[in-house]
């Protein structure tokens, strides 16, 4: 087990080094740092002096070493566009993204497991078929379209309510009722400062602002987990130990949840763990649709303006989060399932 953990750890460090190298190449050879710092009328001598002072004339390996050392200290330079230290910008934006990802992960897990168990147990019921069809459509609708539709349905439509409005040919709701389900579609709402962490999870307004982006971000993973749980349930329910449990006269509840669901959870935990990384990446889309002031929105803006320091810092941060998640999932999985340990550690790195 120790060999396995060390092996995985070395691999994680290797990935981070490659990412750091890519980030280094981007920041040194794409954005000319001098050009971005001085104005048009700086003389040639001034530029040369700054190059030497900043160490840009040193050999590339020395510069790479310095880049890593600065990165480890959390120093990624100053944004071209916003003229502020990148580390401060990211520290300000990180809580918004992490809270959004957390809420989306909880929605995806809860909805996915409940829906998966339901459709797995009643595989031929009309309601199950309806859920599966909707989930197929959900996979085909890109995240941003779902976000737009939710904004329209829950933020725009309620505001434009006209008394006596007819929806689909019959009157569904009065304007007061429509107004009550209206949700904000822009920003984080009221936040509370907890030291350097601004949280929207402590105010009612913050929660209301989380609903639409949270659902939007979670939907893809919700359908993924739902389909996974369903197929695992169908598989497990066919096994002999489930038949035996029924033969012993155990209640449906004990069989379905105590025996069947429990045995479906290992792959679900793995997929869910890995998907948290993708939630962080895909939050860039959701944050843009809902103008959510997180890291993803910062990153998209930095790509649009070729703001290299922010781009590289975001990449390194995202890579670090992915690598930590993958490492944790690998180790957890090996701890749960001993078969993986022996044959992977032995043959994988030939």
């Amino acid at each position: 087990m120790l060999a396995f953990v060390v092996n995985r750890l070395l691999q994680a460090v290797g990935v981070m080094l490659v990412v750091a190298l890519v980030a280094f190449v981007i920041s040194n050879y794409i954005g000319d740092p001098i050009n971005n710092m001085v104005g048009q009328d700086a003389t040639h001598e001034d530029r040369a002096r700054m190059r030497t002072e900043l160490g840009l004339d040193d050999p590339a390996p020395v510069q790479f070493g310095r880049f890593i050392a600065e990165g480890l200290r959390g120093n990624f330079g100053i944004s071209y566009q916003l003229k502020r230290p990148v580390s401060t910008l990211i520290a300000e934006r990180l809580p918004a993204t992490l809270e959004l990802v957390l809420v989306a992960a909880v929605i995806a897990l809860a909805g996915g497991v409940v829906g998966g168990v339901y459709t797995g147990l009643r595989r031929n019921a009309m309601s199950s078929r309806a859920i599966m069809t909707v989930s197929l459509v959900g996979v085909s609708l890109p995240t941003f379209v779902i976000g737009i539709l939710l904004i329209y349905g829950f933020a725009v439509l309620p505001k434009s309510c006209v008394e006596g409005m007819h929806l689909f040919g019959r009157m569904l709701l009065t304007c007061a009722e429509v107004g009550a389900i209206a949700l904000p579609s822009f920003g984080r709402g009221d936040t509370v400062e907890l030291g350097s962490w601004t949280s929207g999870l402590l105010t009612a307004d913050g929660w209301r602002h989380l609903v639409l982006p949270g659902i939007t971000l979670s939907l893809f993973n919700l359908t993924l987990i739902l389909r996974l749980v369903r197929s695992e349930m169908l598989e497990v329910l066919r096994t002999d130990y489930i038949k035996f449990a029924r033969a012993r006269g155990l209640s449906n509840r004990a069989v379905n949840f105590g025996h069947a669901l429990k045995n479906t959870l290992v792959p679900v935990i793995t997929v869910a763990g890995i998907q948290i990384g993708s939630l962080i990446a895909f939050s860039t889309i959701t944050e843009t649709v809902f103008q959510w002031p997180g890291m993803g929105l910062l990153f998209i803006q930095s790509v649009q303006f070729a703001d290299v320091p922010i781009m590289t810092a975001y990449l390194v941060m995202a890579a670090l989060i992915f690598v930590i998640i993958n490492f944790t999932v690998d180790v957890l999985y090996a701890a749960i399932d001993p078969r993986l340990r022996s044959d992977r550690a032995g043959t994988a790195r030939a």
Partner: peptide, 20 residues
């Protein structure tokens, strides 16, 4: 290494590099 990242993020970064 590349599979560690969602393809969407890599495409976005490549686009940013070209813009740079």
């Amino acid at each position: 290494v590349q599979l560690t990242f969602p393809a969407f993020l890599i495409a976005l970064t490549l686009d940013g590099i070209v813009r740079g």
